[in-house]
Design a binder for these strands. Structure first.
Ligand SMILES: NC(=O)c1ccc[n+]([C@@H]2O[C@H](COP(=O)([O-])OP(=O)(O)OC[C@H]3O[C@@H](n4cnc5c(N)ncnc54)[C@H](O)[C@@H]3O)[C@@H](O)[C@H]2O)c1
Ligand SMILES: NC(=O)c1ccc[n+]([C@@H]2O[C@H](COP(=O)([O-])OP(=O)(O)OC[C@H]3O[C@@H](n4cnc5c(N)ncnc54)[C@H](O)[C@@H]3O)[C@@H](O)[C@H]2O)c1
Lengths: 213, 213
DNA sequence: ATCCTTTTGTGAAAAGAATCACGACTTCTA
DNA sequence: TAGAAGTCGTGATTCTTTTCACAAAAGGAT
């Protein structure tokens, strides 16, 4: 595994990939770092640098070939392999995710969900079955990633069961900072904090005055 | 406005604030950077550095006084002023947010929502009225922040209307990278990319082998 | 009182990321 | 074919963030 790609770069790859996909659907066959920059709002030098970690993907004076680049990223991002995902907690957020089709230009698929509430268990949403949380260990096969959308108070306990059941990655939407062994990867998405920090930035980092539109 | 606080620090402030609140509810009156570190999973030196941008808030050999620190952050984060928020697009995600009470230890309140669908308009969810998007400019008063949960294709157009209507901050959940004038602040939360990048990290940055639990 | 322990606050170093700026190469035009 | 225009890839620079490591202060124990 190539160990040298900076994390900041890695986080932008899916963004590039998505935009390249759009370009291809529009029938465009070439693109420059400048155009890309405009669309994804990342400095063009940063884009060139990002790409350069993977070698020389472009051509001077021309730009990048969309199809080639796309093919390259498809491999790099494992777009040909489907990663199965489970939703833990079918409440407000969990249900929203179930209704949303993450599959659109994406390599992940929600294949099952779990809940503690007997009223929710047994149903299926968009073809995805909802199992009782008690059956977690038994049902979780071929699933590497879990999306955690349960109350914060349950987060740590359920996480430990997920880890025992073999989960390797968790997208955690609860405000709890969960502890996991070091072979499991957790990404936190803390919506309340995002909102709060947006407000903080608005109040404390005033941007230039209104003038243009 | 104190212009020197690093952005990385600013993003962690709400996290600290929330945890300090918990501590206070538990009746704890003192806390060290080490304890905090354990709970919020941020290196203790980073925490001390973060706090130090605001002056000397702690006492050597003792730690920090919870109540004092909390009071300090309350002011810094404007927790006494309520920021009104509007939801744009009452679909899967928008509805989930409406049902969720962002107010719990938070200074933001969703006060209205908008949708283009006549079937949704006129209802209210948890006491929050849903207005037709056509009335955006007329209804949006005393609202500085919008949460954007509409289809990506609508994002840029609606954003321009939001800006004209005086919105200063947007939490954008659509995959579209919207353009705004430089006096408006946008934070992107791109759930599909978060998921994709989690999978990328799992595949390319293998963590140490299983051994402990 | 004295000594030991704890813990802060911060210079200094290291690590990580973004940006500048330009040589080299390619394409395009005529 | 020659010259102009466009664009990449990357060394060097700058900026940002994290981490180390320790003197200084305070608390606690005896
Ligand atoms: N909805 C939002 O807008 C929002 C915003 C910010 C943060 N969050 C966080 O996301 C999480 C989920 O929020 P929500 O609004 O969807 O909550 P919710 O209460 O609507 O849903 C939680 C679901 O988890 C289930 N559950 C409870 N304990 C469980 C367990 N041990 N095992 C399995 N399932 C269990 C419940 O039955 C329920 O269906 C919470 O931690 C919340 O703090 C939500
Ligand atoms: N639901 C998810 O889990 C999820 C995950 C990732 C990204 N997203 C993104 O979040 C956004 C919302 O997703 P969703 O699942 O809630 O979609 P949705 O289709 O359920 O809801 C969109 C809502 O916006 C309304 N709308 C459409 N055009 C509008 C306009 N011009 N003005 C006002 N309202 C309008 C629709 O009537 C609908 O109620 C989308 O951009 C989607 O890509 C959603």
């Amino acid at each position: 595994m190539e160990r040298k790609i900076p994390q900041a770069t890695a986080k932008r790859l899916p963004l590039y990939y998505r935009f390249l996909n759009n370009l291809q659907h529009q029938g465009k066959s070439r693109v420059s770092s400048k155009e890309l920059s405009l669309a994804v709002k990342v400095d063009s030098a940063t884009i060139r640098r990002d790409f350069s970690y993977f070698g020389a993907l472009g051509k001077k004076g021309y730009g990048y070939n969309v199809e080639y680049l796309l093919g390259f990223f498809r491999k790099t991002l494992n777009q040909d392999e489907l990663t199965n995902v489970a939703i833990i907690g079918v409440g407000n957020l969990g249900t929203a995710f179930l209704h949303y089709n993450f599959l659109k230009n994406n390599n992940t698929k929600i294949v099952m969900a779990f809940d503690a509430d007997p009223k929710k268990v047994g149903q299926d949403v968009e073809g995805v079955p909802i199992y009782p949380i008690d059956n977690l260990e038994e049902k979780l096969k071929d699933v590497r990633v879990a999306i955690l959308t349960i109350p914060a108070s349950e987060a740590q306990g359920v996480t430990e069961r997920l880890v025992k059941a073999g989960i390797e990655g968790i997208l955690n939407f609860t405000p709890a900072r969960i502890s996991v062994p070091n072979y499991v990867r957790v990404h936190h998405i803390d919506l309340a904090i995002e909102l709060q920090s947006l407000v903080y930035f608005m109040n404390h980092y005033p941007l230039p005055d209104k003038e243009e539109i």
